[in-house]
């Protein structure tokens, strides 16, 4: 995902501020919580992004929703966004924050697609191998895709490790076509 300059800059200062206050873990939890709230309520997202709703109204709605649920750091940050008239970008900033935090902490998110659910052993093996290969802490998320027939496909950033049966069949097909197989 690509973020605008504004989102990157604000997310950066948000992270630095949380770090200075020693409250990175709390803030990270806040971010996850807000993103979840927004996900659960499309109206809220629409309100925040809407150019028609006045910024002051947005702030009061947000404060009402968030008070007591998030830390003081986050509350202050939301107020600050209101002051700077950047409340529209809140959700993008929060997304940028999650990515930024991963980068700063050397964590890489990775997606494993497999045809059947992974066993604990397989999961451990994959994780182990990925961490050795990329020399970074890896957080796995899993999904099931029966389209790949068998095996698995791991996505880490821009790199794809494709060990699916589907890909192997494609390779075989390519090889047979390119070899100029003829019956004469």
């Amino acid at each position: 995902m690509r973020f605008s300059k504004v989102a990157t800059v604000y997310a950066n200062s948000y992270f630095d501020f949380a770090l200075a206050q020693g409250k990175v873990d709390e803030v990270t939890k806040d971010v996850a919580k807000i993103l979840e709230i927004v996900k659960g309520s499309p109206e809220l997202e629409r309100t925040i992004k809407s150019p028609i709703v006045k910024p002051s109204a947005k702030i009061s709605i947000l404060i009402e929703v968030l008070t007591g649920r998030v830390s003081s750091v986050t509350e202050r940050f939301v107020n600050f966004l209101g002051e700077k008239n950047r409340i529209d970008s809140l959700i993008e900033i929060l997304h940028a924050y999650s990515v930024l935090k991963d980068v700063k902490e050397g964590v890489v998110r990775s997606d494993v697609k497999s045809a059947a659910p992974l066993s604990n052993e397989q999961r451990k093996e994959i994780l182990q191998r990925l961490e050795n290969k990329f020399e970074k802490k890896i957080i796995l998320s899993e999904s099931i895709d029966e389209d790949i027939i068998g095996g698995f496909v791991v996505t880490v950033g821009d790199t794809i490790i494709d060990a699916s049966i589907k890909n192997q069949l494609l390779q075989v097909k390519k090889k047979l076509i390119n070899s100029g197989l003829s019956l004469n």
Binding site: T159, I161, D162, Q168, L176
Partner: peptide
């Protein structure tokens, strides 16, 4: 034709 084929994981 397939004798030389080894089914290794593709990394790209």
């Amino acid at each position: 034709q397939l004798s030389g084929y080894s089914g290794e994981a593709d990394v790209y």
